[in-house]
Amino acid sequence: MNKKLPFVKRIMLKMQGFMMKAMISCDEASRLASKSLDTKLTPGEKMRMKMHLMACRFCRSFEKQIHAIRSILRSKSKEMTEDTEEKSLSTEARERLENSIKENK
């Protein structure tokens, strides 16, 4: 048993060092969450972010929020553009456009 301790301790220290390196702050985690919406994270970044999110519900909320903003923005803006009840050209603008097309045809 005694002989094993230094070994176990060595492993523990190694793991601790690894964990410390892997632990990032909310500041960094939220930046990574935002970055992940734009580009693929490196495996290291991905792991650090995941570990942080597991431990931190605020950053989990942050990540969900920025995803919700993107998804609602994208779906609503498409929906509104399709919606013929929505804003349309004024009569004056319509005339102006039609004239400029006629003149340049």
């Binding site: 509104m80 553009t81 804003k87 349309s88 050209l89 102006r96 456009l97 039609e98 006629k102």
Partner: peptide, 27 residues
Amino acid sequence: PEKWVELHGDYLFRYAMMRLNNKSLAE
């Protein structure tokens, strides 16, 4: 081309408005 405004004008205008949020710019 004389039918373009009729066919696409409102749609393109809404598309532009959504992004520019300014009527005269969108026009």
